[in-house]
Every structure is written in structure tokens, then in C-alpha cells.
Design a protein around this nucleic acid. Structure first.
Length: 186
DNA sequence: CGCCTTTGACCGGCGC
DNA sequence: GCGCCGGTCAAAGGCG
């Protein structure tokens, strides 16, 4: 995979806030950050800022530096891991650069949304998805795609949409949590 | 043949 | 009540 995560400018934050309110109300938005936006977690590790739908910084997201997982080949290369109901996102760009970015979400908010700068719309997050809809939405020249998790009994959905404001950015919104492990590739 | 995507129809919420 | 809009359904078709 080749896409960039967690890079933006402060000007972009205005855009993402409006974007959140208009299109993904109640969604938690994970903005990209510049190096100056990096904050510290309780563990002293660097962390990306997370903004909720009120525009407030949330503390449910924590990053872990590569040193914690560098030696774990099973983790590296897998974009998504599920551990005890917590969603763990791993930045593929960070993997490539040797800096593993894991984001754990422990809030009970069922939706998270994040942007990635990507050439492709469909980002492989490890799960199998079935497309069930596509919609042209207002003020955006790209269609929004709707997917459901293919795992039996799993109700997790996601929406994928490329921004017309910035055609290089794909926004993915996940709704619900997987209560199963990532199906192993054949 | 089974699985998946495509795509128009349908439905519910919301604003006027 | 009506129309717009976003989300979902489901039939049809494609593909391996």
C-alpha cells in the first residue's frame, strides 16, 4: 500500500470540522497533523491529535512509537488489528518509514472517520467488505461508496469518499466495531 | 454456480 | 404536505 496518513495544515482543520458537521455528524474525526501538531501521550510518546464533533481534542487516541512494536513482525504490515473491542489503526506510511502509528479507540462512539492521501479509493484494511450502495452526494463530484463487513453476523459498515476539495484525499468512515479477528489471507 | 458489483428504486428524516 | 437528500435494498448482470 502507498498512502500518506496524518499530514495536514492547520487550515485543513477548519475544513475537516465543517466536513464533520455537515456530512458526518457524531463522527469522530482523526485529522492529519503536522509535526508541530504532535502532542505527547501519558507514556511520553508522540501522538496525533483527535478532534471530536464538538471540535474538542479527545484523549481516547494514543499512539505508540515503533520501538514498542518494531520487533513484532506479526504487527508490521497489518493495517488493522482488533484487540478486545478496541479499534487499532496502523498507518501504512508509518510502517514504511519505520515509525508505526497505532491508534486505539476506546470510546463508545460507534463512528470514526479519517482521511488518507491516496491514489486508490479502496484501502485494504484487512477485512472483507461487500459493497451495497453508491451515492452521488451534494457538493462533491465523487460518489460515496457504502460497504458492509462480510464476516457473518458482523454489522460493521464503512463509507468511502474522495473529497472534491482535494482530489488526493480519501475519507473513510467506520461505523461499529468488529467483534471478530481479521480473516487470515489464504 | 456462487459471489460480488452495479444501479435504479425505495424509504425515512428534515427543512421549508 | 412536499421535495430534497442521504442511506439501504434488491434485482440484474459480470466474472472467476
Amino acid at each position: 500500500m502507498s498512502y500518506n496518513c496524518f499530514k495536514t495544515s492547520s487550515a485543513d482543520k477548519k475544513m475537516t470540522t465543517a466536513f464533520d458537521h455537515n456530512l458526518w455528524s457524531n463522527a469522530l474525526f482523526i485529522p492529519d497533523t503536522t509535526s508541530s501538531d504532535v502532542i505527547k501521550t501519558d507514556h511520553g510518546n508522540q501522538s496525533n491529535v483527535m478532534i471530536n464533533h464538538h471540535g474538542n481534542q479527545s484523549n481516547v487516541m494514543k499512539n505508540h512509537m515503533a520501538s514498542q512494536v518494531d520487533e513484532d513482525d506479526d504487527i508490521m504490515g497489518k493495517p488493522w488489528l482488533l484487540e478486545g473491542g478496541n479499534v487499532v489503526v496502523e498507518s501504512p506510511e508509518a510502517v514504511g518509514s519505520g515509525c508505526d502509528t497505532k491508534i486505539e479507540m476506546k470510546a463508545n462512539n460507534p463512528k470514526i472517520a479519517f482521511q488518507t492521501r491516496s491514489q486508490v479509493d479502496i484501502l485494504d484494511d484487512g477485512y472483507k467488505w461487500r459493497k451495497y450502495g453508491q451515492k452521488i452526494v451534494k457538493n462533491n463530484k465523487f460518489a460515496r461508496n457504502y460497504y458492509k463487513c462480510n464476516y457473518k453476523g458482523c454489522n460493521v459498515k464503512k463509507q468511502v469518499q474522495r473529497l472534491s476539495k482535494d482530489e488526493g484525499v480519501v475519507c473513510t468512515t467506520y461505523e461499529g466495531f468488529h467483534e471478530h479477528t481479521i480473516p487470515m489471507p489464504p
